[in-house]
Amino acid sequence: MKQIASLTAIAFLALAACSSGKQEPAPSASASDDAAVEAIPPEVGTETASESATTATPTAAADVLGLEGLGALKIGQPVPKGGTWAERGAQTGDACRTVSSPDYPGVYAIVENGKVQRITVGGTSKVKLAEGVGIGATEKDVKGWFGGFREEPHKYEAAPAKYLTAPNARPGESALRFEIGQDRRVSLIHVGQMPALGYVEGCA
């Protein structure tokens, strides 16, 4: 009986030791677990930072001049109705008119036969081409982006002032023309169709 009691006591002590032992803490998340969490795509309907940046670009795009035009003002099309483009100041005649917009300081457009033929960017305008070329850019910058442009002496300024005109400048096709000042920097940018693209005094 003593032997049985002794065995019982030993078993009781072993059981007590097991039950009173400290529990191991739960394993912490590893670096691979963190990576897995980060890899989970966002829920449908949530907006990521890159998507947020994309949705903020339309305003910036409105200040980009392209061969097709500037914003709602399109080469070869009538001046858009209900917008801010309108005739301002004295006009030289009925055949050729100029329009401008308070939304685009330093920019005006030539309208002939009811359609936009040229858009001119000058002054302190922030409007630029998609390549980043704007007023004040160097002649070197222009030639770096637009090689093969035809050079002509400037009508009102001495050399090195000049005109740089795209080789595809012709009636019915939109093209680029730069005016380079004596400081070898862009003073005016024109986009439009010949002959209006080549006018040196607004409508003339």
Score class of each variant (00 low, 15 high):
residue 75 I to E: 02
residue 161 A to T: 07
residue 103 D to A: 13
residue 88 R to G: 00
residue 196 A to Y: 05
residue 152 E to G: 09
residue 174 S to V: 03
residue 154 H to M: 12
residue 32 S to C: 07
residue 119 I to V: 15
residue 98 T to C: 09
residue 79 V to Y: 05
residue 197 L to H: 05
residue 84 T to P: 00
residue 142 V to E: 04
residue 75 I to S: 02
residue 134 G to R: 03
residue 123 G to Y: 04
residue 52 S to H: 08
residue 118 R to V: 13
residue 167 P to L: 10
residue 123 G to V: 01
residue 24 E to T: 14
residue 154 H to Q: 10
residue 191 V to T: 06
residue 183 D to W: 05
residue 124 T to F: 10
residue 202 G to C: 02
residue 143 K to P: 00
residue 36 A to F: 07
residue 188 L to W: 10
residue 51 E to F: 08
residue 32 S to Q: 12
residue 36 A to R: 15
residue 123 G to E: 07
residue 2 K to F: 11
residue 148 G to I: 05
residue 195 P to Y: 07
residue 99 V to K: 05
residue 11 A to R: 03
residue 8 T to M: 06
residue 85 W to G: 07
residue 152 E to K: 14
residue 141 D to R: 08
residue 41 P to S: 14
residue 2 K to H: 11
residue 58 P to R: 08
residue 193 Q to C: 06
residue 131 E to W: 02
residue 21 G to A: 15
residue 56 A to H: 08
residue 70 L to H: 00
residue 103 D to C: 03
residue 95 A to M: 12
residue 180 I to K: 06
residue 172 G to Q: 07
residue 183 D to C: 09
residue 194 M to N: 05
residue 101 S to F: 00
residue 114 G to Q: 08
residue 71 G to Q: 01
residue 156 Y to S: 13
residue 59 T to N: 03
residue 191 V to C: 05
residue 166 A to H: 08
residue 46 T to Y: 13
residue 150 R to E: 13
residue 150 R to F: 05
residue 5 A to H: 11
residue 8 T to S: 09
residue 141 D to G: 03
residue 182 Q to R: 15
residue 10 I to W: 02
residue 203 C to I: 05
residue 160 P to V: 11
residue 55 T to L: 09
residue 17 A to F: 08
residue 57 T to W: 03
residue 26 A to M: 13
residue 25 P to K: 09
residue 1 M to A: 15
residue 190 H to W: 11
residue 142 V to F: 04
residue 28 S to I: 06
residue 165 T to D: 02
